[in-house]
Nucleic acid binder design. Structure first.
Length: 429
RNA sequence: GACCCCAUCGUCUAGUCUGGCCUAGGACAUCAGAUUUUCAUUCUGACGACACGGGUUCGAAUCCCGUUGGGGUCGCCA
Protein backbone atom coordinates (compact mmCIF):
# COMPACT_ATOMS: atom_id res chain seq x y z
CA UNK A 1 0.00 0.00 0.00
CA UNK A 2 1.20 3.47 -0.78
CA UNK A 3 0.07 6.62 0.95
CA UNK A 4 -1.21 8.10 -2.27
CA UNK A 5 -4.74 9.40 -1.89
CA UNK A 6 -6.76 10.75 -4.79
CA UNK A 7 -10.36 11.82 -5.00
CA UNK A 8 -13.24 12.29 -7.35
CA UNK A 9 -15.59 15.08 -6.35
CA UNK A 10 -18.70 15.39 -8.47
CA UNK A 11 -21.52 17.72 -7.66
CA UNK A 12 -24.95 16.10 -7.95
CA UNK A 13 -26.44 18.83 -10.06
CA UNK A 14 -26.71 16.71 -13.17
CA UNK A 15 -26.00 13.27 -14.57
CA UNK A 16 -22.48 11.89 -14.69
CA UNK A 17 -20.90 13.62 -17.65
CA UNK A 18 -18.53 11.72 -19.94
CA UNK A 19 -15.77 14.17 -19.10
CA UNK A 20 -16.28 13.63 -15.39
CA UNK A 21 -16.33 9.90 -15.90
CA UNK A 22 -12.97 10.18 -17.65
CA UNK A 23 -11.56 12.21 -14.76
CA UNK A 24 -12.85 9.65 -12.30
CA UNK A 25 -11.36 6.89 -14.42
CA UNK A 26 -7.87 8.40 -14.46
CA UNK A 27 -7.99 9.01 -10.71
CA UNK A 28 -9.08 5.43 -10.19
CA UNK A 29 -6.39 4.05 -12.49
CA UNK A 30 -3.71 5.93 -10.64
CA UNK A 31 -4.96 4.87 -7.22
CA UNK A 32 -5.08 1.24 -8.29
CA UNK A 33 -1.71 1.45 -10.00
CA UNK A 34 0.13 2.62 -6.93
CA UNK A 35 -2.03 0.83 -4.40
CA UNK A 36 -3.38 4.12 -3.10
CA UNK A 37 -6.79 5.18 -1.88
CA UNK A 38 -9.60 6.47 -4.03
CA UNK A 39 -11.90 8.82 -2.15
CA UNK A 40 -15.34 9.87 -3.30
CA UNK A 41 -16.62 13.24 -2.19
CA UNK A 42 -19.95 14.77 -3.08
CA UNK A 43 -19.90 18.52 -3.53
CA UNK A 44 -23.49 19.25 -2.71
CA UNK A 45 -23.32 22.66 -1.11
CA UNK A 46 -25.63 24.08 -3.73
CA UNK A 47 -28.94 23.11 -2.18
CA UNK A 48 -30.96 24.53 -5.02
CA UNK A 49 -29.45 22.43 -7.76
CA UNK A 50 -28.31 19.31 -5.90
CA UNK A 51 -30.71 16.42 -6.35
CA UNK A 52 -30.85 13.00 -4.79
CA UNK A 53 -31.73 11.38 -8.09
CA UNK A 54 -28.58 12.79 -9.67
CA UNK A 55 -26.48 11.51 -6.80
CA UNK A 56 -27.96 8.02 -7.08
CA UNK A 57 -27.42 7.93 -10.80
CA UNK A 58 -23.81 9.13 -10.49
CA UNK A 59 -22.97 6.42 -7.97
CA UNK A 60 -24.72 3.84 -10.10
CA UNK A 61 -22.87 4.90 -13.24
CA UNK A 62 -19.48 4.83 -11.54
CA UNK A 63 -20.11 1.31 -10.31
CA UNK A 64 -21.45 0.33 -13.70
CA UNK A 65 -18.16 1.39 -15.30
CA UNK A 66 -16.24 -0.67 -12.78
CA UNK A 67 -14.92 2.25 -10.74
CA UNK A 68 -15.14 1.44 -7.06
CA UNK A 69 -14.06 3.77 -4.27
CA UNK A 70 -12.31 3.02 -1.01
CA UNK A 71 -13.67 5.84 1.14
CA UNK A 72 -16.82 7.89 1.07
CA UNK A 73 -19.00 9.13 -0.29
CA UNK A 74 -18.38 12.10 1.98
CA UNK A 75 -20.89 14.89 1.72
CA UNK A 76 -19.80 18.47 1.83
CA UNK A 77 -23.21 19.44 3.12
CA UNK A 78 -22.50 17.42 6.26
CA UNK A 79 -19.24 19.24 6.85
CA UNK A 80 -20.62 22.77 6.75
CA UNK A 81 -19.57 23.61 10.31
CA UNK A 82 -15.92 22.82 9.60
CA UNK A 83 -15.12 25.70 7.31
CA UNK A 84 -15.88 28.77 9.41
CA UNK A 85 -13.16 28.18 12.05
CA UNK A 86 -10.52 28.18 9.33
CA UNK A 87 -11.85 31.42 7.93
CA UNK A 88 -11.80 32.98 11.38
CA UNK A 89 -8.24 31.86 11.84
CA UNK A 90 -7.25 33.70 8.67
CA UNK A 91 -9.19 36.69 9.93
CA UNK A 92 -7.19 36.67 13.15
CA UNK A 93 -3.93 36.35 11.31
CA UNK A 94 -4.89 39.39 9.29
CA UNK A 95 -4.84 37.46 6.02
CA UNK A 96 -8.54 38.01 5.46
CA UNK A 97 -11.05 40.77 6.08
CA UNK A 98 -14.78 41.14 6.43
CA UNK A 99 -17.04 42.76 3.91
CA UNK A 100 -20.47 42.83 5.45
CA UNK A 101 -21.15 39.22 6.42
CA UNK A 102 -18.70 37.82 3.92
CA UNK A 103 -15.11 36.92 4.68
CA UNK A 104 -12.63 37.79 1.96
CA UNK A 105 -9.07 36.58 1.50
CA UNK A 106 -6.51 39.30 0.82
CA UNK A 107 -4.38 38.41 -2.17
CA UNK A 108 -0.94 40.00 -2.06
CA UNK A 109 0.16 41.85 -5.15
CA UNK A 110 2.86 40.76 -7.58
CA UNK A 111 3.89 37.43 -6.16
CA UNK A 112 4.90 34.47 -8.25
CA UNK A 113 3.15 31.16 -7.76
CA UNK A 114 4.71 28.13 -9.37
CA UNK A 115 2.66 25.03 -10.02
CA UNK A 116 4.62 21.87 -10.74
CA UNK A 117 1.92 20.12 -12.75
CA UNK A 118 2.38 16.39 -13.35
CA UNK A 119 0.97 16.66 -16.87
CA UNK A 120 1.91 20.14 -18.02
CA UNK A 121 5.15 20.71 -16.19
CA UNK A 122 5.91 24.04 -14.54
CA UNK A 123 3.22 26.71 -14.81
CA UNK A 124 3.79 30.22 -13.52
CA UNK A 125 1.10 32.57 -12.26
CA UNK A 126 1.35 36.07 -10.91
CA UNK A 127 -0.92 37.12 -8.05
CA UNK A 128 -1.49 40.48 -9.68
CA UNK A 129 -3.88 38.62 -11.99
CA UNK A 130 -5.82 37.32 -9.02
CA UNK A 131 -8.23 39.46 -7.09
CA UNK A 132 -9.22 39.02 -3.48
CA UNK A 133 -11.07 35.75 -2.95
CA UNK A 134 -14.30 35.10 -1.14
CA UNK A 135 -13.86 32.49 1.60
CA UNK A 136 -17.26 32.66 3.25
CA UNK A 137 -20.23 34.00 1.37
CA UNK A 138 -22.71 36.45 2.84
CA UNK A 139 -25.10 33.63 3.59
CA UNK A 140 -22.46 31.92 5.72
CA UNK A 141 -21.67 29.10 3.28
CA UNK A 142 -18.07 28.52 2.16
CA UNK A 143 -16.94 29.38 -1.36
CA UNK A 144 -15.90 26.50 -3.60
CA UNK A 145 -12.14 27.05 -3.68
CA UNK A 146 -12.01 27.42 0.08
CA UNK A 147 -13.93 24.35 1.08
CA UNK A 148 -12.19 22.36 -1.65
CA UNK A 149 -8.84 23.09 -0.01
CA UNK A 150 -10.07 22.29 3.48
CA UNK A 151 -11.74 19.09 2.35
CA UNK A 152 -8.74 17.90 0.38
CA UNK A 153 -6.52 18.60 3.34
CA UNK A 154 -8.84 16.91 5.85
CA UNK A 155 -9.09 13.89 3.62
CA UNK A 156 -5.35 13.71 3.19
CA UNK A 157 -5.47 14.02 -0.59
CA UNK A 158 -1.94 13.81 -2.00
CA UNK A 159 -2.66 14.09 -5.73
CA UNK A 160 -5.33 16.23 -7.27
CA UNK A 161 -6.14 14.94 -10.74
CA UNK A 162 -8.80 17.05 -12.42
CA UNK A 163 -9.71 18.85 -15.62
CA UNK A 164 -7.83 21.75 -17.17
CA UNK A 165 -10.81 23.94 -16.38
CA UNK A 166 -9.52 24.02 -12.81
CA UNK A 167 -6.06 25.18 -13.79
CA UNK A 168 -6.78 28.79 -12.97
CA UNK A 169 -8.24 27.81 -9.60
CA UNK A 170 -4.96 26.21 -8.65
CA UNK A 171 -2.94 29.32 -7.73
CA UNK A 172 -5.84 30.57 -5.62
CA UNK A 173 -6.02 27.26 -3.82
CA UNK A 174 -2.26 27.17 -3.30
CA UNK A 175 -2.55 30.56 -1.62
CA UNK A 176 -5.11 29.07 0.79
CA UNK A 177 -2.99 25.98 1.47
CA UNK A 178 -0.08 28.17 2.46
CA UNK A 179 -2.12 30.62 4.49
CA UNK A 180 -3.69 27.77 6.44
CA UNK A 181 -0.37 26.05 6.95
CA UNK A 182 -1.40 22.97 4.97
CA UNK A 183 0.83 20.80 2.81
CA UNK A 184 0.32 21.57 -0.85
CA UNK A 185 -0.65 18.41 -2.77
CA UNK A 186 0.60 17.49 -6.22
CA UNK A 187 -1.53 18.61 -9.13
CA UNK A 188 -2.29 17.01 -12.48
CA UNK A 189 -4.56 18.84 -14.88
CA UNK A 190 -5.96 16.81 -17.71
CA UNK A 191 -6.84 18.51 -20.98
CA UNK A 192 -10.58 18.58 -21.52
CA UNK A 193 -12.53 16.25 -23.69
CA UNK A 194 -14.19 18.01 -26.62
CA UNK A 195 -17.00 17.22 -28.99
CA UNK A 196 -16.35 15.90 -32.47
CA UNK A 197 -16.31 19.43 -33.87
CA UNK A 198 -13.73 20.62 -31.36
CA UNK A 199 -16.10 22.65 -29.22
CA UNK A 200 -17.03 21.83 -25.68
CA UNK A 201 -18.88 18.56 -25.36
CA UNK A 202 -22.45 19.61 -24.82
CA UNK A 203 -25.99 18.41 -25.28
CA UNK A 204 -26.12 19.22 -28.94
CA UNK A 205 -23.36 16.66 -29.54
CA UNK A 206 -25.83 13.98 -28.55
CA UNK A 207 -24.79 11.77 -25.67
CA UNK A 208 -22.90 13.62 -22.96
CA UNK A 209 -24.02 11.59 -19.98
CA UNK A 210 -22.82 8.12 -19.13
CA UNK A 211 -26.34 6.81 -18.65
CA UNK A 212 -27.16 7.68 -22.26
CA UNK A 213 -24.50 5.26 -23.44
CA UNK A 214 -25.76 2.64 -21.05
CA UNK A 215 -29.19 3.19 -22.51
CA UNK A 216 -28.01 3.04 -26.10
CA UNK A 217 -26.59 -0.38 -25.38
CA UNK A 218 -22.87 0.08 -24.85
CA UNK A 219 -20.92 -2.24 -22.61
CA UNK A 220 -19.38 -0.59 -19.54
CA UNK A 221 -15.98 -2.12 -20.18
CA UNK A 222 -16.03 -0.72 -23.72
CA UNK A 223 -16.91 2.79 -22.57
CA UNK A 224 -14.18 2.68 -19.92
CA UNK A 225 -11.73 1.32 -22.48
CA UNK A 226 -12.53 4.08 -24.94
CA UNK A 227 -12.39 6.85 -22.34
CA UNK A 228 -8.97 5.79 -21.11
CA UNK A 229 -7.69 5.97 -24.69
CA UNK A 230 -8.64 9.62 -24.83
CA UNK A 231 -5.42 11.13 -23.60
CA UNK A 232 -3.52 7.99 -22.79
CA UNK A 233 -2.07 5.11 -24.77
CA UNK A 234 -0.79 1.81 -23.40
CA UNK A 235 2.89 1.34 -24.13
CA UNK A 236 2.42 -1.79 -26.20
CA UNK A 237 -0.13 0.03 -28.36
CA UNK A 238 -2.80 -2.60 -27.82
CA UNK A 239 -5.95 -0.56 -27.70
CA UNK A 240 -8.38 -3.16 -26.47
CA UNK A 241 -7.62 -3.59 -22.82
CA UNK A 242 -9.60 -4.10 -19.66
CA UNK A 243 -9.31 -1.89 -16.61
CA UNK A 244 -7.09 -4.32 -14.73
CA UNK A 245 -4.71 -4.52 -17.66
CA UNK A 246 -4.60 -0.74 -17.91
CA UNK A 247 -3.85 -0.48 -14.20
CA UNK A 248 -0.63 -2.42 -14.73
CA UNK A 249 0.88 0.16 -17.03
CA UNK A 250 -0.82 3.42 -16.14
CA UNK A 251 1.01 6.54 -15.05
CA UNK A 252 -0.22 10.11 -14.64
CA UNK A 253 2.79 11.57 -16.38
CA UNK A 254 1.86 9.59 -19.50
CA UNK A 255 -1.41 11.43 -19.83
CA UNK A 256 -1.36 13.54 -22.96
CA UNK A 257 -1.42 17.32 -22.62
CA UNK A 258 -3.58 17.81 -25.69
CA UNK A 259 -7.33 18.14 -25.87
CA UNK A 260 -9.05 15.09 -27.27
CA UNK A 261 -12.19 14.93 -29.32
CA UNK A 262 -14.82 12.36 -28.52
CA UNK A 263 -15.38 10.02 -31.47
CA UNK A 264 -18.42 7.76 -31.31
CA UNK A 265 -17.23 5.67 -34.24
CA UNK A 266 -14.22 4.43 -32.38
CA UNK A 267 -16.32 3.76 -29.31
CA UNK A 268 -18.63 1.66 -31.45
CA UNK A 269 -15.71 -0.28 -32.84
CA UNK A 270 -14.40 -1.01 -29.36
CA UNK A 271 -17.86 -1.99 -28.22
CA UNK A 272 -18.14 -4.37 -31.13
CA UNK A 273 -14.83 -5.94 -30.16
CA UNK A 274 -16.11 -6.57 -26.65
CA UNK A 275 -19.37 -7.98 -27.91
CA UNK A 276 -17.64 -10.58 -30.03
CA UNK A 277 -15.42 -11.55 -27.10
CA UNK A 278 -18.50 -12.33 -25.03
CA UNK A 279 -20.50 -15.51 -25.08
CA UNK A 280 -24.07 -15.22 -26.32
CA UNK A 281 -25.18 -16.27 -22.86
CA UNK A 282 -23.49 -13.22 -21.32
CA UNK A 283 -25.17 -10.87 -23.76
CA UNK A 284 -28.65 -12.20 -23.21
CA UNK A 285 -29.44 -10.34 -19.98
CA UNK A 286 -28.41 -6.86 -21.13
CA UNK A 287 -30.12 -7.35 -24.47
CA UNK A 288 -33.26 -8.53 -22.74
CA UNK A 289 -33.16 -5.40 -20.60
CA UNK A 290 -32.73 -3.22 -23.64
CA UNK A 291 -35.68 -4.93 -25.31
CA UNK A 292 -37.88 -4.33 -22.31
CA UNK A 293 -36.94 -0.67 -22.39
CA UNK A 294 -37.99 -0.62 -26.02
CA UNK A 295 -41.40 -1.95 -25.14
CA UNK A 296 -40.99 -5.67 -25.67
CA UNK A 297 -42.69 -7.87 -23.13
CA UNK A 298 -40.37 -10.13 -21.25
CA UNK A 299 -42.85 -13.02 -21.17
CA UNK A 300 -43.16 -12.93 -24.95
CA UNK A 301 -39.49 -13.56 -25.52
CA UNK A 302 -38.29 -17.11 -25.30
CA UNK A 303 -34.83 -17.32 -23.79
CA UNK A 304 -33.59 -20.04 -26.10
CA UNK A 305 -34.99 -18.24 -29.13
CA UNK A 306 -33.23 -15.02 -28.17
CA UNK A 307 -30.00 -16.90 -27.54
CA UNK A 308 -30.02 -18.41 -31.01
CA UNK A 309 -30.57 -14.99 -32.57
CA UNK A 310 -27.73 -13.45 -30.58
CA UNK A 311 -25.49 -16.28 -31.71
CA UNK A 312 -26.46 -15.58 -35.32
CA UNK A 313 -25.82 -11.84 -35.10
CA UNK A 314 -22.98 -11.59 -32.62
CA UNK A 315 -20.44 -10.59 -35.26
CA UNK A 316 -22.76 -8.09 -36.87
CA UNK A 317 -23.85 -5.62 -34.20
CA UNK A 318 -21.79 -3.17 -32.25
CA UNK A 319 -24.41 -1.91 -29.79
CA UNK A 320 -27.57 -3.44 -28.39
CA UNK A 321 -29.47 -0.73 -30.17
CA UNK A 322 -28.05 -1.97 -33.46
CA UNK A 323 -28.96 -5.51 -32.48
CA UNK A 324 -32.59 -4.52 -32.22
CA UNK A 325 -32.77 -2.80 -35.58
CA UNK A 326 -31.00 -5.74 -37.18
CA UNK A 327 -33.30 -8.36 -35.72
CA UNK A 328 -36.80 -6.88 -35.63
CA UNK A 329 -38.00 -9.46 -38.15
CA UNK A 330 -37.53 -12.13 -35.48
CA UNK A 331 -39.79 -10.41 -33.01
CA UNK A 332 -42.36 -8.55 -35.06
CA UNK A 333 -44.41 -9.40 -38.11
CA UNK A 334 -44.67 -5.73 -39.05
CA UNK A 335 -40.93 -5.33 -39.56
CA UNK A 336 -39.92 -2.48 -41.85
CA UNK A 337 -39.51 -3.31 -45.53
CA UNK A 338 -36.43 -1.49 -46.74
CA UNK A 339 -37.23 0.39 -49.94
CA UNK A 340 -33.94 -0.39 -51.67
CA UNK A 341 -34.18 -4.04 -50.75
CA UNK A 342 -37.71 -4.20 -52.09
CA UNK A 343 -36.75 -2.60 -55.40
CA UNK A 344 -33.84 -4.91 -55.86
CA UNK A 345 -35.24 -8.23 -54.73
CA UNK A 346 -39.01 -8.20 -54.68
CA UNK A 347 -40.33 -5.81 -57.30
CA UNK A 348 -39.64 -7.91 -60.40
CA UNK A 349 -42.01 -10.58 -61.73
CA UNK A 350 -39.38 -13.28 -61.87
CA UNK A 351 -38.34 -12.64 -58.27
CA UNK A 352 -41.90 -13.25 -57.21
CA UNK A 353 -42.04 -16.42 -59.27
CA UNK A 354 -38.85 -17.70 -57.66
CA UNK A 355 -40.20 -16.85 -54.25
CA UNK A 356 -43.41 -18.76 -54.89
CA UNK A 357 -41.58 -21.81 -56.17
CA UNK A 358 -39.14 -21.86 -53.29
CA UNK A 359 -42.01 -21.56 -50.83
CA UNK A 360 -43.77 -24.45 -52.50
CA UNK A 361 -40.67 -26.61 -52.31
CA UNK A 362 -40.09 -25.70 -48.69
CA UNK A 363 -43.48 -27.02 -47.71
CA UNK A 364 -42.20 -30.47 -48.46
CA UNK A 365 -39.25 -30.10 -46.09
CA UNK A 366 -40.07 -32.17 -43.06
CA UNK A 367 -37.41 -31.12 -40.59
CA UNK A 368 -36.92 -27.37 -41.00
CA UNK A 369 -33.19 -27.20 -40.34
CA UNK A 370 -30.75 -24.91 -42.08
CA UNK A 371 -29.09 -27.92 -43.66
CA UNK A 372 -32.33 -29.24 -45.12
CA UNK A 373 -33.42 -25.77 -46.23
CA UNK A 374 -30.16 -25.27 -48.07
CA UNK A 375 -30.43 -28.70 -49.67
CA UNK A 376 -33.93 -27.86 -50.82
CA UNK A 377 -32.70 -24.59 -52.29
CA UNK A 378 -29.82 -26.24 -54.15
CA UNK A 379 -32.02 -28.97 -55.55
CA UNK A 380 -34.54 -26.45 -56.73
CA UNK A 381 -31.75 -24.49 -58.35
CA UNK A 382 -30.45 -27.53 -60.21
CA UNK A 383 -33.88 -28.67 -61.30
CA UNK A 384 -34.93 -25.26 -62.64
CA UNK A 385 -31.46 -24.26 -63.86
CA UNK A 386 -31.88 -20.97 -62.06
CA UNK A 387 -29.03 -19.75 -59.91
CA UNK A 388 -29.47 -20.27 -56.19
CA UNK A 389 -28.95 -16.57 -55.65
CA UNK A 390 -32.22 -15.93 -57.51
CA UNK A 391 -34.05 -17.73 -54.73
CA UNK A 392 -31.90 -16.59 -51.88
CA UNK A 393 -32.05 -12.83 -52.27
CA UNK A 394 -35.82 -12.42 -52.66
CA UNK A 395 -36.31 -14.82 -49.77
CA UNK A 396 -34.01 -12.87 -47.52
CA UNK A 397 -35.82 -9.65 -48.23
CA UNK A 398 -39.28 -11.18 -47.95
CA UNK A 399 -38.44 -12.78 -44.66
CA UNK A 400 -36.53 -9.90 -43.06
CA UNK A 401 -37.23 -6.75 -45.06
CA UNK A 402 -33.51 -6.27 -45.48
CA UNK A 403 -30.64 -6.52 -47.90
CA UNK A 404 -28.22 -8.08 -45.46
CA UNK A 405 -28.21 -10.10 -42.30
CA UNK A 406 -27.07 -13.41 -40.90
CA UNK A 407 -26.82 -16.59 -42.98
CA UNK A 408 -30.19 -16.95 -44.66
CA UNK A 409 -30.72 -20.65 -44.01
CA UNK A 410 -29.89 -20.24 -40.34
CA UNK A 411 -32.24 -17.29 -40.12
CA UNK A 412 -35.01 -19.35 -41.68
CA UNK A 413 -34.47 -22.20 -39.29
CA UNK A 414 -34.67 -19.92 -36.29
CA UNK A 415 -37.75 -18.15 -37.61
CA UNK A 416 -39.53 -21.44 -38.19
CA UNK A 417 -41.32 -22.97 -41.12
CA UNK A 418 -44.74 -21.37 -40.73
CA UNK A 419 -43.53 -17.81 -40.42
CA UNK A 420 -41.06 -18.19 -43.25
CA UNK A 421 -43.58 -19.63 -45.69
CA UNK A 422 -46.27 -17.14 -44.74
CA UNK A 423 -43.92 -14.24 -45.35
CA UNK A 424 -42.68 -15.68 -48.64
CA UNK A 425 -46.19 -16.16 -49.89
CA UNK A 426 -47.18 -12.67 -48.83
CA UNK A 427 -44.48 -11.15 -51.05
CA UNK A 428 -44.79 -13.58 -53.97
CA UNK A 429 -48.17 -12.31 -55.09
C1' G B 1 -9.75 41.97 -23.70
C1' A B 2 -6.28 39.94 -19.72
C1' C B 3 -4.08 35.52 -17.86
C1' C B 4 -3.21 30.30 -18.54
C1' C B 5 -3.08 25.60 -21.50
C1' C B 6 -2.28 23.42 -26.31
C1' A B 7 -0.77 22.51 -31.76
C1' U B 8 1.72 15.10 -35.84
C1' C B 9 -3.20 11.89 -41.01
C1' G B 10 -10.70 13.62 -40.83
C1' U B 11 -10.39 11.38 -35.39
C1' C B 12 -7.40 8.91 -31.22
C1' U B 13 -2.30 8.56 -31.04
C1' A B 14 3.58 6.64 -31.37
C1' G B 15 7.81 9.58 -31.82
C1' U B 16 9.12 15.33 -28.50
C1' C B 17 11.78 15.47 -22.19
C1' U B 18 17.35 12.53 -23.58
C1' G B 19 17.94 16.33 -31.81
C1' G B 20 20.20 11.90 -36.27
C1' C B 21 17.52 4.74 -36.31
C1' C B 22 11.25 9.18 -39.08
C1' U B 23 11.61 8.96 -47.16
C1' A B 24 6.93 10.01 -39.59
C1' G B 25 4.59 4.07 -37.18
C1' G B 26 -0.26 2.12 -35.34
C1' A B 27 -5.71 2.31 -34.53
C1' C B 28 -10.79 4.16 -35.95
C1' A B 29 -13.27 6.09 -40.15
C1' U B 30 -13.29 6.29 -45.62
C1' C B 31 -12.32 4.05 -50.50
C1' A B 32 -10.76 -0.31 -53.67
C1' G B 33 -9.78 -5.64 -54.37
C1' A B 34 -10.17 -10.92 -52.48
C1' U B 35 -13.40 -14.38 -49.67
C1' U B 36 -18.94 -14.91 -48.50
C1' U B 37 -25.91 -16.71 -51.03
C1' U B 38 -26.42 -11.07 -48.79
C1' C B 39 -24.57 -8.04 -44.95
C1' A B 40 -20.89 -8.19 -41.39
C1' U B 41 -16.29 -10.55 -40.32
C1' U B 42 -11.41 -11.72 -42.15
C1' C B 43 -7.26 -10.64 -45.48
C1' U B 44 -4.70 -7.29 -48.95
C1' G B 45 -4.06 -2.47 -50.68
C1' A B 46 -5.06 2.90 -51.23
C1' C B 47 -5.89 7.74 -49.34
C1' G B 48 -4.06 10.72 -45.50
C1' A B 49 -0.28 14.67 -40.90
C1' C B 50 4.78 17.15 -38.29
C1' A B 51 -0.15 24.81 -38.47
C1' C B 52 3.09 28.96 -40.43
C1' G B 53 7.62 32.01 -40.17
C1' G B 54 12.25 32.79 -38.15
C1' G B 55 16.41 31.10 -35.43
C1' U B 56 20.15 27.35 -32.81
C1' U B 57 22.74 23.08 -35.06
C1' C B 58 26.73 19.35 -39.47
C1' G B 59 21.55 17.74 -38.68
C1' A B 60 14.86 19.62 -35.96
C1' A B 61 8.40 16.62 -35.83
C1' U B 62 11.83 16.89 -31.63
C1' C B 63 15.25 22.88 -28.69
C1' C B 64 14.27 28.66 -28.69
C1' C B 65 11.38 33.05 -30.38
C1' G B 66 7.30 35.03 -32.98
C1' U B 67 2.64 34.55 -35.76
C1' U B 68 -1.78 32.10 -36.55
C1' G B 69 -5.35 28.82 -34.82
C1' G B 70 -8.07 26.09 -30.95
C1' G B 71 -9.39 25.62 -25.73
C1' G B 72 -9.92 27.14 -20.58
C1' U B 73 -10.58 30.85 -16.72
C1' C B 74 -11.70 35.64 -15.26
C1' G B 75 -19.14 34.48 -9.95
C1' C B 76 -20.52 35.68 -2.75
C1' C B 77 -21.67 28.44 -9.41
C1' A B 78 -19.19 24.12 -8.55
Amino acid sequence: MSNVRVRFAPSPTGFLHLGSARTALFNWLYARRVGGTFVLRIEDTDNQRSKKEFLDEILKDLKWMGLDWDEGPFFQSERSSLYMPHAEKLLEKGLAYKDGEAIIFKVADDQIIEVEDLIHGKIIFNTKEIKDQVLIKSDGSPAYNFCCVIDDNDMGITHIVRGDDHLSNTPKQILFYKALGFNVPKFAHMPLMMGKDGTKLSKRHGGVAVFEYKQEGFLPEALANYLMLLGWMPKDGKEILALDEAVKQFDISDINNVQAKFDVDKLKWINGEYIRQKKAEELRAPIMQKMEEEGYRKENIDKEYLLRIIELYKERFRTFSEFLTLTTCFFKDDYVMDEKAFQKNLSKEESKKCLAEFAKALKEVKEFTSKNIEECCRELSERTEIKAAQFIHPTRTAVSGMLGGAGLFEMMEVLGKDKVIARMEKWSI
